[in-house]
C-alpha cells in the first residue's frame, strides 16, 4: 500500500513536470476544450433568442449554464487513454510498464488526476467568467450539491474504465484512430454535448439512456442544473453503479486477454 502511494506521488511529480515542459500545448489544448462547448452555447442561445427566449425546457440562461457546467463535467471525467495507450504500445513503452510489479493502470490514473488538478482550476475560472459574460442562470439546492459529488465521482470511474477497456483494442491492432473517432462522435451526441438530451429525437434519447455515455457527462450536468428529480437521481446513481460493475470486470478481462495477444513493438 505504501509502495503504491509512493508510486502515485512520483507519477504526480512526473506529470506535473511534463505539463510545465509543454506549456504551449497545454494552453492550446485548453483553448480547444473551451471552444467546443462555447460554440454550441452560442448556437443554442441564438436559437433560443430567436424563439422567444426558450427552446423546450431550456431558457437562454439555462442553455448558458448547461454548456458551461457540461464543459467542467466533461473535463472532470475526460481521459486520453485511447490515444496514450496506442502510443505507448506503438513506441514500445508499454513493454517496460508490463515488467514492473504494479499494474500499469495506476500510472494512467495518477497521470490523469494530476493533469486535472492543473487544468480544472483554470477552466473553472474561465467558466465563471463566461457565465457572467453570457448571463448564465443557475440556482442549486443543497440536496443537488450533495448528490452531485458522488454522481461525478461515479461518472469519472465509469468513463475511465470504459475508455480503458476500449483502449485495449490497441493490443490487437495499432490502427485504432478510426475506432477512437467513432467513439468520440458517439460521445458527442449521446452525452449531450451537441444539445441537451431532452432536445434530441426520441430514439436517440432512448439509445443514450441504454448506453453508458450519457451517464458519464449528461446526467451529472443535468443534475446540477436541477433538471433531475430526486427519485430520478437515485435511479441514475443505480445505473451508474451497474455500469461501474460491468466496466470494472470488462476492463480486467480485456486487459488479461490483450496482454496475452500482445506482441511487443519497439526495442
Amino acid at each position: 500500500m505504501k509502495a503504491l502511494f509512493q508510486m502515485y506521488l512520483q507519477q504526480f511529480k512526473t506529470t506535473f513536470a511534463s505539463m510545465f515542459q509543454y506549456r504551449a500545448s497545454l494552453l492550446i489544448w485548453m483553448i480547444g476544450q473551451v471552444l467546443e462547448p462555447l460554440v454550441f452555447l452560442v448556437v443554442w442561445s441564438t436559437v433560443s433568442n430567436g424563439n422567444g427566449g426558450s427552446v423546450g425546457d431550456y431558457t437562454t440562461g439555462a442553455f448558458v449554464s448547461y454548456f458551461l457546467v457540461l464543459m467542467l463535467v466533461n473535463q472532470f471525467t475526460y481521459t486520453w487513454l485511447m490515444w496514450d495507450y496506442e502510443w505507448r504500445i506503438r513506441e514500445g513503452i508499454l513493454s517496460f510498464a508490463l515488467l514492473k510489479p504494479v499494474h500499469p493502470i495506476h500510472s494512467f490514473i495518477a497521470d490523469n488526476l494530476m493533469s486535472k488538478a492543473i487544468q480544472l482550476p483554470v477552466l473553472t475560472v474561465i467558466a465563471v467568467a463566461l457565465a457572467f459574460t453570457f448571463h448564465a442562470v443557475l440556482s442549486v439546492s443543497l440536496w443537488v450539491v450533495l448528490a452531485f459529488i458522488p454522481v461525478l465521482i461515479l461518472a469519472f470511474f465509469v468513463r475511465f474504465l470504459l475508455e480503458w477497456t476500449l483502449a485495449q483494442a490497441a493490443f490487437w491492432t495499432t490502427r485504432v484512430s478510426s475506432l477512437n473517432q467513432l467513439y468520440f462522435l458517439l460521445l458527442l451526441l449521446f452525452s449531450g454535448q451537441i444539445a441537451p438530451l431532452s432536445l434530441l429525437p426520441h430514439s436517440i434519447q432512448i439509445a443514450a439512456k441504454i448506453l453508458p455515455l450519457y451517464w458519464t457527462v449528461g446526467f451529472p450536468t443535468e443534475l446540477l442544473l436541477g433538471k433531475i428529480t430526486p427519485s430520478a437521481a437515485l435511479f441514475g446513481i443505480g445505473v451508474q453503479a451497474v455500469w461501474l460493475i460491468i466496466t470494472f470486470f470488462l476492463a480486467g478481462a480485456v486487459f488479461k486477454l490483450g496482454t496475452k495477444a500482445y506482441s511487443a513493438v519497439g526495442q
Partner: peptide, 8 residues
Amino acid sequence: GMAIIFSY
C-alpha cells in the same frame, strides 16, 4: 447536429 438545431 445541424439537423437537430434546425428542427427548432
